[in-house]
Design a binder for these strands. Structure first.
Length: 435
RNA sequence: GCGCCCAUCGUCUAUCGGUUUAGGACACCAGGUUUUCAUCCUGGUAAGCGGGGUUCGACUCCCCGUGGGCGCGCCA
């Protein structure tokens, strides 16, 4: 029998990293096994399940490359099937009607737990058992006639022929109920695998209060899909050995459930950032450029940037970029009116007056055949002339021509900027900023 | 309260009873390279929650304790 797994989100808003991590593990597992990855939209909450929320889910899956193998199932369309199953259980005496008096709407349908002790094997947590006395009957159809999660979930998993259910471990206790339902319905019981939670520094479930928690936020913050995928895959799973930077293909080959941990793990944004830098640097230049543009499409100057120049800037800065959003700093390459980082100006230009040196440098630069090598010589010569130590004029030059204290190599940066801009900025800095 | 689950450096993890002075990565610290910036390189600090067993031998198995998480809805 071919392996079939599903990702079953409720489209009620943003997609949490814990949820998407569950999707990633399901996907990795099924791609490793050569089975089918399916999507079931649990949209029974008609109030909160909006088309926008559904689109958010789809976008998140697509962004991360979690491709599905069949059309999605919508739970809201399955109500009749759920109710029919409830009737079957009722007719077999496996469920009963009762007015628990909580809603004032009359009787609901309650599933009768067999009362036996139950055990099942969890693919990540091992053998789990629960005593019969702790397994209580539960409502499967509300008194208003709507099916409850447990029923809908199981019926749909049966319909979709799901062979392994991988989900968050907050569902561990539900599993006993679900298995009882499977048995009552005479369906083959799937395998189960429960994934530990992603927690914050306090050990509590990681939430938006702890930082970026939704997949859309990471995307907006300039992270790469491959890096987030890699990072999240490593949260609770390890291929063994010392491997961390992994391609999707490698992860597929290496992914097995017996290497999934059953202890919760803490989100570490710094490590994600590190991994992101690695993945970013590995990209082909064209791909990198494309992504930078996409991530910064709100920046007017970038949209209007000369393509040739933009390419050169990307080439120069790719290796030192951690997130796509950092490209917002590259503005000084493309506009005449640049922003100066106040702190850099104060520390590098004002603290010790470099106006004379910069003025002199500007006049030397103006005569130059403008190559990185010649620029370096010009800076060296200027330092000598004004009796500054070697290298002392590098930072002032950088701040003067870029407005920032960090960037690519200053000679290359100046060369790329072009003589006209460099000279103008040096003069401006010497006359206006050094005082 | 009851039930279930979990427990290795600050963090993510390796270790599937013995090749271990517990390895790697992030972070941090110190040097070096870069006559600048970012990288990069080298080194360092840093862990088996406590107590009992089992065993020739335990981080690894068992029990108790402690701590944390989850569950106990006509939510999903």
């Amino acid at each position: 029998m071919t392996v079939r797994v599903r990702f079953a989100p409720s489209p009620t808003g943003q997609v949490h990293i814990g949820n998407i991590r569950t999707a990633i593990f399901n996907w990795l597992y099924v791609r490793h096994e050569g089975g089918k990855f399916l999507l079931r939209v649990e949209d029974t909450d008609r109030e909160r399940s909006t088309p926008e929320a559904l689109k958010t889910v789809i976008d998140a899956l697509d962004w991360l490359g979690l491709d599905r193998d069949e059309e999605a199932m919508f739970q809201s369309a399955r109500c009749d099937a759920h109710l029919e199953a409830a009737e079957t259980l009722l007719s077999k005496g496996l469920a009963y009607k009762e007015d628990k008096g909580k809603t004032g709407k009359g009787e609901c349908i309650i599933f009768r737990m067999p009362g036996d002790d139950m055990t099942y094997h969890d693919e990540v947590k091992g053998d789990l058992k629960k005593e019969g006395k702790d397994l209580k009957d539960f409502v499967i159809v509300r008194s208003d006639g709507s099916p409850v999660f447990h029923l809908a979930n199981v019926i749909d998993d049966i319909e979709m022929n799901i062979t392994l259910i991988m989900r968050g471990d907050d569902h561990v206790e539900n599993t006993f109920r679900h298995i009882a339902l499977y048995r009552a319905l005479g369906a083959e019981i799937p395998q189960y695998a429960h994934l530990p939670m992603i927690v914050n520094a306090q050990g509590k479930p990681y939430s938006k209060r702890d930082g970026a928690a939704f997949i859309g936020e990471f995307r907006e913050n300039g992270y790469m899909a491959d890096a987030l995928f890699n990072y999240l895959a490593l949260l609770g799973w390890s291929p063994g050995g010392d491997r961390e930077l992994l391609s999707r293909q490698e992860m597929i080959e290496l992914f097995t459930l017996d290497r999934v941990r059953s202890a919760s793990s803490q989100m570490d944004v710094k490590k994600l950032g590190f991994l992101n830098g690695l993945h970013l640097a590995e990209q082909p230049l064209n791909k990198f450029m494309e992504q930078v543009c996409e991530a910064n499409d709100a920046l007017e100057w970038m949209n209007q940037a000369d393509p040739g120049m933009f390419r050169k800037v990307c080439e120069l800065l790719q290796s030192r970029t951690k997130t796509y959003n950092q490209a917002a700093e590259w503005k000084y390459f493309f506009v005449d009116d640049i922003d100066y980082a106040e702190k850099a100006v104060r520390k590098v230009l004002k603290k010790e007056d470099r106006s004379g040196a910069l003025e002199l440098l500007a006049s030397r630069m103006a005569q130059l055949d403008f190559s990185a090598e010649n620029i370096e010589h010009a800076i060296r010569a200027t330092e000598k002339e004004v009796e500054l130590g070697e290298g002392k004029l590098n930072q002032p030059t950088r701040v003067a021509i870029t407005g920032l204290a960090t960037g690519a190599g200053v000679y290359e940066t100046a060369a790329l900027l072009g003589k006209e801009r460099v000279v103008a900025r040096l003069l401006y800095a010497a006359r206006e900023l050094c005082v």
